[in-house]
């Protein structure tokens, strides 16, 4: 990816001085980089329950940012075109393909990755059911699927089979044939229902 800094003042030299000043003002008003060079974005957001600040090249995808800068490698990339769901994260509770988001887009948002699911070493019930039901094989699709299920069950604690399928249809698994994944999700829903 190419990151080019832009200086509109220079490139549009034919404009009047007053116009140029207005241009600069407009452009600056929507930047957050104090240096004014726009090379890095000052990103503030909540990651797995903690406030985080970072300087990030704005064209870096959220996926790369999480993996390389935050060193959270549980979020996987496999197709980089939104067709496999391996890179799912939850943004304000909604599942999103982090390979299709640029890091600055999560400014002031709440991001949960697979690493943020287990609390004080206690696995989330969905994680536990994936393990118990044998829904984990190679494991590469697992974090994305667990987050898809998490989002689904947060919105709907008793999904029908059709609703489960709609909630999980964006995640490709090449190993398991999905049967055990579906069972794990359904059992997690049951277990969560019992808790309530």
């Amino acid at each position: 990816m190419k990151t080019k800094a832009c200086h509109p003042e220079r490139s549009e030299g034919s404009q009047s001085f007053g116009r140029r000043r207005k241009t600069a003002e407009i452009l600056r008003s929507a930047q957050n980089d104090k240096s004014g060079k726009g090379r890095l974005w000052s990103l503030k957001f909540t990651l797995n329950g903690k406030k985080v600040s970072a300087q990030v090249p704005p064209t870096r995808t959220l996926l790369d940012f999480l993996r390389l800068d935050m060193r959270l490698t549980g979020t996987k990339g496999a197709c980089l075109e939104g067709e496999c769901g391996s890179c799912y994260v939850l943004v304000d509770g909604k599942p999103m393909n982090s390979c299709l988001m640029l890091a600055p887009q999560v400014q002031d948002r709440d991001v949960t990755t697979i690493e943020g699911l287990a609390h004080s070493k206690k696995l989330d019930v969905i994680q536990q059911k994936f393990i118990d039901c044998g829904a984990v094989q190679c494991g590469y699709c697992t974090p994305g699927l667990i987050l898809a299920a998490k989002a689904l069950l947060a919105e709907n604690s008793h999904p029908t089979r059709e609703e489960f399928l709609a909630g999980m249809e964006g995640n490709i698994c090449r190993c398991t044939g999905y049967n055990k994944i579906l069972r794990a999700c359904e059992q997690a829903a049951d277990a969560m229902g019992l808790k309530k």
Partner: peptide, 22 residues
Amino acid sequence: LRLDAVGKATGATKYGQDLFDK
């Protein structure tokens, strides 16, 4: 239960690309 399942379900397991560093 699979011995590798917890690592995989929590994102802790390291695959090839997870060994990268800037």
